[in-house]
């Protein structure tokens, strides 16, 4: 399959950037901010699982670390919000590197890797729910300070542009990976780890690097969440919901593709909103829809929406090119 070109990325980001010029509706903007946030977190998961084949069920560990570091540094140590946000990304990357080093050194693969990432996220969640520094069960409220230098804004538009920028950066990173030698190694690990090692790929290091990048991207999502909602607790930051959102978006959109997470996040969030509209805001129903979509996509469209589009395009191409082929035969 052909990768996404730079022009595609510029085009998509430009189209999304035009939205606030067309509408000032808070509902629309809020929907898009959350969808883009999910796209960002999902892009992180996509790096590790889509390209590297390592399915993590605990990306909440990185999201939560990004969120908590951002919030704690500001509220407990008076650090500037932007610096705290940057350190939150670094913190998430560090946690990713640490978990990755442990898991990959022990040679954990497949289900075992999924289990151990899940367990790490749960340990962090329980620790965050009792430790005083995280505000324990109460959570942390970031004090209202509506100034740009405090990473807080009056309206939603600046937040929208910031999360869009983050998504754009993540798209560029993934495109860079896709075209690099590192990306080729990563895909080799996904397709056949033993064979990759046999031809000289340092699989443990490649996986570790992928996990660190993956964690950093997801942690950026966590830090942004903290600034946007100004409140986190252990259930939000380290809860299973974000681990599921992180994998659902790329799987629905197209796993191992540049645009998959973005596409998937928009589709999934739209379905969730429709479910809410149909039934009235009942708790749980949007998640029922998400789980159902996950099963259906795995069953009927394992390559996600991107895969469906590709096969459709191939079919059209074949239709158009088939008459001359017949003439030759």
């Amino acid at each position: 399959m052909k990768g996404a070109s730079l022009a595609h990325i510029v085009l998509v980001i430009a189209a999304l950037a035009a939205v606030p010029l067309l509408t000032a509706s808070n509902v629309v903007l809020n929907f898009l901010v959350v969808a883009l946030l999910v796209a960002l977190v999902g892009q992180g998961w996509n790096v590790l699982a889509g390209y590297g084949g390592q399915y993590s069920f605990g990306h909440a560990a990185f999201f939560g670390t990004g969120a908590y570091v951002t919030a704690i540094l500001q509220m407990r140590y008076g650090v500037n919000a932007w610096i705290a946000f940057t350190l939150g990304i670094a913190g998430g990357a560090l946690v990713g590197a640490a978990i990755g080093a442990l898991a990959f050194r022990s040679g954990l693969r497949g289900s075992y890797f999924a289990l151990v990432t899940l367990a790490f996220a749960e340990v962090l969640r329980i620790l965050a729910s009792v430790a005083p520094v995280t505000g324990a069960g109460v959570g942390i409220l970031i004090a209202l300070d509506l100034r740009p230098q405090a990473f807080q804004f009056q309206g939603r538009v600046p937040f929208y542009w910031i999360v869009l920028t983050l998504v754009a950066v993540s798209l560029l990173i993934v495109r860079l990976i896709e075209q690099s030698r590192f990306g080729a190694w990563l895909v080799a690990v996904r397709e056949n780890e033993d064979a990759a090692r046999a031809v000289g790929v340092d699989t443990a290091r490649v996986k570790l690097a992928a996990m660190t990048i993956s964690a950093a991207i997801t942690a950026a999502g966590g830090g942004f969440y903290a600034q946007y909602f100004l409140f986190i607790d252990s259930g939000i930051a380290y809860g299973p919901w974000i681990s599921i959102a992180a994998l659902l978006a790329p799987i629905v959109g197209g796993i191992g593709t540049v645009f998959g997470p973005l596409l998937g996040a928009l589709v999934v969030k739209t379905l969730g909103e429709i479910a809410k509209l149909v039934t009235g805001d009942a708790p749980g129903l949007d998640l029922v829809v998400y789980g159902g979509v996950l099963i259906l996509v795995v069953a009927f469209a394992p390559q996600g929406i991107a895969g469906l589009l590709t096969s459709l395009r191939l079919r059209f191409a074949r239709l158009r090119s088939s008459p001359p082929e017949r003439a030759h035969g």
Binding site: V288, G292, V298, A299
Partner: peptide, 28 residues
């Protein structure tokens, strides 16, 4: 069985999806 297409990774995802559906249907 049918949804997994014989791939272990898919089984992980399908059972995870089932978990989400069952749990949240009960919640609902």
């Amino acid at each position: 069985g049918p949804a997994a297409h014989g791939e272990d990774r898919n089984v992980l995802l399908v059972t995870l999806g089932l978990a989400v559906v069952i749990e949240n249907m009960l919640l609902y």
